[in-house]
Amino acid sequence: MDTEATSKDSVGTDFDQDFLKKLEYLHVVAKKVFAGRSRAERRSRSTGAGIEFADHRDYAAGDDLRYVDWAVYGRMDRLLLRLFEQEEDLHIYILIDVSASMRLGGSGQKSLLTVGTDGRIAKLGYAAQVAAALSYVGLANLDRVAVYAFAGELLGQLPPARGKGRIFKVFDFLSGLSPEGATDLSTSLRQFVQKAKRRGVAIVLSDFYDAAGYEEGLNLLRYHRFEPAVLQILDPRESKPSLRGDLDLVDMETGELRQVTLSAAQCQAYEREHAAYCAQLESFCKGRGIGYMRAETSQPFDELVLNALSRGGFVR
């Protein structure tokens, strides 16, 4: 990313200069990490009009004689047709959870996308930063990147596009997100698979707090031949709450109120319950070949993105 583009981007979005500098850094680092290993282009399994040789097959009537391998015919007296791999664009779908629970972590700052005075950032803000970083890396690699926002359903989308210049659209889209509503992964992802015509990598950024369960939604992605990847974003305080005394607990998504008196033992029990829930999600993903990563908002997002890229498999 050049300086001019950065300056332009910083105007009209909630992503600050630091963030943009980090994206540029990520781009440079990503190039070094993946140099000689892959290019931006992705090869499809189908053969076609590419330039990379893939295989031979027997000549059949009607085949284009230009692809007959005459050298083989001279040696083996057989008519074999040369096949080439067909080149096609990789589609990266980034699905970002904008349910009310993603508001957690914001401490009153003007925008959820920025870090507050206390050094904390809302889960949605953190997810948006990660989404922007992934989008930038994808766009820079000439992949087609689309961004979808969902909660109880698909709430908005940024159509697939390619090229680094499109990153500004991504910024604008992410800056306009606001958390509301309850999570319904099943409905949201069902709508997504119906909308997305081309198969590709579907990265779901969410806390996966869905009262109806996340399994059906993730399975839908698999069944429709997407390559799902899960990035579970958590706030440190929800993993290890330090609540004590007489409280009114209000569910951020449903508004359900419960009067409780919490002790240290109950908080510890919750902590165990929460860890078990996350472990269950991880186990579900790994059991089905779904890439899984868990991130807490206290972890720097660039570190997370690099970690995700270096793992391979998470973003191919």
Partner: peptide
């Protein structure tokens, strides 16, 4: 009582 918002009451 103190009002506390939790992300996932379940």
């Amino acid at each position: 009582r103190r009002r506390i918002e939790v992300p996932f009451a379940q």
